[in-house]
C-alpha cells in the first residue's frame, strides 16, 4: 500500500462523507473544499501536476467560491433548511448510492492493471506541454466539443437571466 495515496484517499473520502451529511450548507462547502484539495494531492501524487494546478484553480478557486457565494447570498437560517428526510429514506439513499458506486468501480477493480503496481511516469508526463499537446492533437475533437457544451450552458444561463421572456418584442 502506498501511504500517500492511502492517506489522501482516506481524507478525501472522509471529507466527502462529511460534506454529504452536514446540515449547514456552508460547512458542506468547507468539507467539499477539503475533498477537492485531496483530489488535487492525488493528482500530484500521480505526477499529473498540470491537472492538479488546474483542478485547484478551477474547482476550488472558482467553482466552489461561486457555491459559497450563492450559499451566503441566500444565507439560510436553521428553520429555513426544511425537514430532514426520515431515516429509512436516508438509509435507502445511502445503499442506492453505494450500489451505484460499486457498479462503477467494479469493472476497474476487475482489470489486471489495477492490481499491478503503477509503472513510473514517462518523462514530461503531466506537464503543461504534454497535456497541451494531447488536447490539441489526439483529443482535439472532444476538446472542441466541450467548448460547445460550455457555450450552450452559457446561452442557457443568459436566457434564464433575461428579464423578459424570449419572443416578446420590447
Amino acid at each position: 500500500m502506498d501511504p500517500v495515496a492511502t492517506i489522501t484517499a482516506a481524507v478525501g473520502t472522509a471529507a466527502a462523507l462529511m460534506m454529504v451529511t452536514r446540515r449547514n450548507p456552508v460547512y458542506s462547502a468547507v468539507w467539499l473544499l477539503i475533498t477537492f484539495l485531496s483530489v488535487a494531492v492525488a493528482f500530484l501524487h500521480l505526477s499529473a501536476t498540470f491537472l492538479a494546478a488546474i483542478h485547484v484553480l478551477v474547482y476550488t478557486g472558482a467553482i466552489l467560491v461561486l457555491f459559497v457565494f450563492v450559499i451566503m447570498l441566500l444565507n439560510l437560517q436553521e428553520d429555513e433548511l426544511g425537514d430532514e428526510h426520515p431515516l429509512p429514506v436516508r438509509a435507502l439513499t445511502a445503499i442506492g448510492a453505494t450500489a451505484l458506486f460499486g457498479l462503477l468501480v467494479a469493472p476497474i477493480l476487475a482489470t489486471p492493471e489495477f492490481a499491478a503496481p503503477l509503472p513510473p511516469a514517462p518523462e514530461g508526463f503531466g506537464s503543461v506541454e504534454s497535456v497541451g499537446m494531447m488536447l490539441f492533437t489526439k483529443f482535439a475533437l472532444p476538446f472542441e466539443l466541450v467548448s460547445v457544451l460550455i457555450i450552450v450552458a452559457m446561452f442557457g444561463s443568459l436566457i434564464l437571466a433575461r428579464k423578459r421572456p424570449l419572443g416578446s418584442d420590447t
Binding site: F50, A53, I54, V56, L57, T60, G61, V65, V128
Partner: peptide, 9 residues
Amino acid sequence: LFSMSVLSL
C-alpha cells in the same frame, strides 16, 4: 500556475 492556483484559495 502553482502560484495562481494557491493564491486563488
